[in-house]
Structure formats: structure tokens, C-alpha cells
Design a protein around this nucleic acid. Structure first.
Length: 491
RNA sequence: CGGGGUGUGGCGCAGUUGGUAGCGCGCGUCGUUCGGGACGACGAGGCCGCUGGUUCAAGUCCAGUCACCCCGACCA
């Protein structure tokens, strides 16, 4: 057992870190807080990207690219925005190095100080709205529906691979609209798109909701989000879509002539998901044997392992496998035939389980004689011997079944972990003993939310969009409330 | 920024009262193996994070310094 994982029950957090490392997803780099995303991890991210990109384009968005650097002055234009990001910005002050006059290495050349410092983007609203000013004169220039795939930097005090890193990869959509209604519609369209992606592709059930004022994006009028639940009962914000009102248009003086011929400020949205989704994917489905990947995002969906003693046996197996591979590929299934002679089958079985490959086929002399193949599924760790003839159809169906099955498993877990609390004691007890989401009444004030956070570490994850109005009393203050909100301890 | 911890072959670690570095994994070659992480033989690989001090002698003692990791507060 070369690669032993910490178990989830032993130490969930260590299990996560072990898994990210040992499944070759990512590792810490020479730069504090920044990760190296390794080829296998990046392959998963690329599958996410490809699908999201397709979905953005289907909904009318185009990709573009804006600079990594933002002039410092741009940040002071939107008060709430600067307030939110100022304390975690990396700043470029110089543009040149020189040989150290003292002799060793290089030093920053003091002569090369920038007139105005550049901020490495923590998010791009400012530079984009500064650009939009030049692009928009008339309602005929609207809407602008742009997305960019980029890296951003937020100098976090404490980082964790994928979940929170100083630099991360993401996409950020920035749209401009002529009317408030249209911008709100866009915000909702995207949060729905994110939910669909999470559920259909990541097999991750999410709750759509609205953020409380405390949790709202810096500069937004309203923040919509998708919230998911990890196996340890903590919540993870998995994507956000912001209705920015006219805040950025006003800050950057972006106006347009409307149909009536009068000048008005442009309405804005912005939205994003990041490599944090990788963390969500790992934590939502995986087990003590390693990753469990949903087939739709698995870089390798099927691995074929030959079992043989002599090279001539391998040749006979390879011959059969060579018949099968084109049939699987024709169905759009990604397949790897691991005929590496340096590793034994047992080693390969363990390795591909660790890497979360959804389906494994093993074929040995016994199978050659019987016209069979061993079929194993990663999510349930079960295996059976089935007929080789027509296996491609069986695999195709099985992949769909696995996709659905891990979604349902996660959904059941999530649903079992949404609990109602009607008193403060009950609230604290659930939080301490069970975790998960707690649906409770709240008086709607930031003060109450803050106090609850101070006393329990739980925050309002969202005010769910789909829920029935229900009169009640705030669990903390006892003041009247018109509906429940979801609390949880979050990542 | 608080609290804890760690820096020794690629990775994980050991190293006693100071005496000039060892184990496991991995790696290379050869042979036997191969249906759940194989075994044997031989072999390669280390300024012991960095700086200074004590000493005949420092991985080990002292002082300083740097870095990273984990836990918290802050945050996608």
C-alpha cells in the first residue's frame, strides 16, 4: 500500500488534502498559497471549462480578455467594491530588477518605480466597466454579454488547495443592459445555468438562493448563489451571480441614450465560478479509497486492465481490446488501455480507484476462454463478470447510471442534512451534533446574523429562492420573520 | 495576525550522553512473478533550510534568520 489515504472519519480535512495530492490533482507550489494544478487535475478542470463555455455560448455570451493589471485609481471609484477587496490585493510597484550592487542576486531597481501602482486583478469589474464606457453610447449597443476565462489573485491569509488559493482560475461574466429587468433576468439566467451545470455534470445538488446583505458581493445590489453541502456537513458556496444595479456604471460613468433619447446609466451583472468547484467535486462524492468522479467530468471514463503471465497472453488480450476501443470511442467514451508492463494488476486497480475512474474492465486468460470481461464500477466498488460481446453498450448505460446514482446519493445526503430549528437551543444543538443546513427564522437584520456568527460560526448561506412563505419568530431575537433562511458552517 | 508544528537522498521518516548519516517507498539493471497495491540480488542517489557561535569535533548544543505546513480570525 504505497498511497495510504487518511480516512474521512479520522480527519476529514486531512483526507481531502491527501486525496488532492495522491490523486495527482494539485500540489502546493514554491509560492505560498499558490497551487500547481497537475495534468490530471487540470484535465478535470478542462472538462468543466469546456461544458460551461458551451453553455455560456448557447445563452448568447462571447469570450473576451481584459488585462491582469488594474490601475490602482480604478479601485477607489466604487466605494463598497474597494472596501471589499482592498485588504487582499497584490500590488505591482516596480517594473525592473537590477543586479544587486552588494553582489548577490538581483534587487528591485528603485529607479523603476511606477507612477501609478497596478493591482493584480482580484476580479475585473473595474477594468471592464472602464472599457465599457467607450463601447456604449446607445441602447443599440446593448446588451453586452461577455465572459472571460482568467486567473485572479486574492491575497488570502489562509489557503487550501482548490478551496481557497491566493491565485485561482475562474470565469467571470460581465454583462451590460439597458434595463433593470433585463439585468435581473440575466442574473437569474446564469444562476440557473450554474445550478444546471452543478447538478447535471458535477452530480452536485445545489440550493439556489439570495445572499444576505452581510454576505453580498462588494458592489452588488443583490447576490444570487448556489450552495452545496460537503460530506462533513459544511456548506460550500459554489457559484455566484450578481445584479450590480447601476453601481459600476455610475462609478465609471457609463451612460447610454435610451429609446426615448434621454441619457441613462447602464445596468450590470457579473457572475463567476472558479477552480473551487474542483474542491466541491472532490469533497462531494469521494470516499476512503479515493476520488469518485461523475462520468461526465472524468478525464478517463473507462480503464481497461489486462491480466496476463506471458507476453503472448498480453498479445491475445490486446487483440480483443483493440476491437473494443474503437467501439467505445464511437460512443464518445474516453477509454484508457493500461498495458504498462511495469505494474501489476492489483496496483493498477488501486491506482484507478484512487483517481476515480468510473468504470474498469479487466480481462485475463479466463475471460479470453469464456468470452467475458470483468466489469467494476468505482462508485459502489462492485464488480461482475459479463459477456464481452456488446460490452460497449453495457458500459455506455452504466456510465449514465453511475452519473445518476452519485447525484442521487449526494441529493439524499443533502436532503437528510437540511433540518428545521425553531428555537435557539435547537439550532445550536443541531449545529454541534449534526452540522448541515439549518432552516430557521431570522429577523432580517445584519446585527442578528453577526451575533449568530460570533456565537456559533454559522452564517446565512442563502435565502432560498424556492420556498413557501411561513410566518415565524427569529430564533435569536424572537422578532417576527416571514420565512426561513438556511444557516450552515461554511468553507 | 494569533496558536501549534516541521525543515535530513525524489517522497515519507529515524538519527541516543556531540565523533562526520541510516531505514522504508520510489528509481536503475537482471531474474522469477502477474485475477486486488509481488519478490530476490546487485546498484545509483544527501553541503542534514540558511547564518553565526561553542567545541579537537555539530544533523545533534546555543543564538539568530528564512521558509513551509496544519488549526483559528478574514474571504470565492
Amino acid at each position: 500500500m504505497a498511497k495510504e489515504l487518511t480516512t474521512r472519519s479520522e480527519n476529514y480535512s486531512q483526507w481531502y488534502l491527501d486525496l488532492v495530492n495522491k490523486a495527482d490533482l494539485a500540489e502546493n507550489s514554491a509560492v505560498r498559497g499558490c497551487m500547481v494544478i497537475k495534468p490530471y487535475g487540470y484535465a478535470i478542470w478542462e472538462k468543466m471549462q469546456a461544458q460551461l463555455d458551451r453553455m455560456f455560448k448557447e445563452t448568447g455570451h462571447s469570450n473576451a480578455y481584459f488585462p491582469l493589471f488594474i490601475p490602482k485609481s480604478f479601485f477607489s471609484k466604487e466605494a463598497a467594491h474597494v472596501e471589499g477587496f482592498a485588504k487582499e490585493c497584490a500590488i505591482v510597484t516596480h517594473y525592473r530588477l537590477k543586479n544587486d550592487p552588494e553582489g548577490k542576486g538581483v534587487v528591485v531597481d528603485p529607479e523603476a518605480k511606477l507612477e501609478e501602482e497596478l493591482i493584480i486583478r482580484p476580479t475585473s469589474e473595474t477594468i471592464i466597466w472602464n472599457t465599457y464606457r467607450n463601447w456604449i453610447q446607445s441602447h443599440r449597443d446593448l446588451p453586452i454579454l461577455i465572459n472571460q476565462w482568467a486567473n485572479v489573485v486574492r491575497w488570502e491569509m489562509r489557503t487550501r488547495l482548490f478551496l481557497r488559493t491566493a491565485e485561482f482560475l475562474w470565469q467571470e461574466g460581465h454583462t451590460a443592459h439597458a434595463t433593470k429587468e433585463e439585468a435581473i433576468e440575466e442574473t437569474l439566467k446564469i444562476i440557473n445555468l450554474y445550478a444546471e451545470f452543478a447538478e447535471q455534470y458535477m452530480a452536485l445538488p445545489v440550493i439556489q438562493g439570495v445572499k444576505s446583505e452581510n454576505e453580498r458581493f462588494a458592489g452588488a445590489v443583490e447576490t444570487y448563489c448556489i450552495e452545496s453541502l460537503m460530506q462533513d456537513g459544511k456548506a460550500l458556496q459554489s457559484g455566484t451571480s450578481h445584479f450590480l444595479g447601476q453601481n459600476f456604471a455610475k462609478a465609471f460613468d457609463v451612460t447610454f441614450a435610451n429609446k426615448e433619447g434621454t441619457l441613462d446609466y447602464v445596468w450590470a451583472t457579473s457572475w463567476g465560478v472558479s477552480t473551487r468547484l474542483m474542491g466541491a467535486l472532490v469533497m462531494a462524492h469521494s470516499d476512503d479509497n479515493g476520488l469518485v468522479l461523475p462520468p461526465r467530468l472524468a478525464p478517463i471514463q473507462v480503464v481497461i486492465v489486462p491480466i496476463y503471465k506471458k507476453m503472448e497472453e498480453l498479445a491475445r488480450i490486446s487483440e480483443k481490446v483493440d476491437e473494443l476501443i474503437p467501439k467505445l470511442k464511437a460512443k464518445g467514451i474516453s477509454v484508457k488501455y493500461d498495458d504498462n508492463d511495469n505494474k501489476k494488476p492489483g496496483w493498477k486497480f488501486a491506482e484507478y480507484e484512487l483517481k476515480g475512474v468510473p468504470v474498469r474492465l479487466a480481462m485475463g486468460p479466463r475471460d479470453l476462454d469464456n468470452g467475458t470481461v470483468e466489469l467494476a464500477r468505482r462508485d459502489t466498488l462492485t464488480k461482475e463478470t459479463v459477456s464481452f460481446e456488446g460490452i460497449e453498450t453495457v458500459v455506455e448505460k452504466l456510465l449514465e447510471e453511475i452519473q445518476e446514482s452519485i447525484y442521487n446519493k449526494a441529493l439524499n445526503f443533502r436532503n437528510e442534512n437540511i433540518r428545521k430549528a425553531d428555537t435557539w437551543d435547537e439550532f445550536k444543538q443541531i449545529l454541534e451534533e449534526k452540522g448541515g443546513f439549518i432552516a430557521a427564522h431570522w429577523d432580517g437584520t445584519g446585527e442578528t446574523e453577526q451575533k449568530i456568527k460570533e456565537e456559533t460560526k454559522a452564517t446565512i448561506r442563502c435565502i432560498p429562492i424556492e420556498q413557501e412563505a411561513e410566518a415565524g419568530k427569529c430564533i435569536y431575537s424572537g422578532k417576527p420573520s416571514s420565512g426561513r433562511v438556511l444557516f450552515a458552517i461554511a468553507y
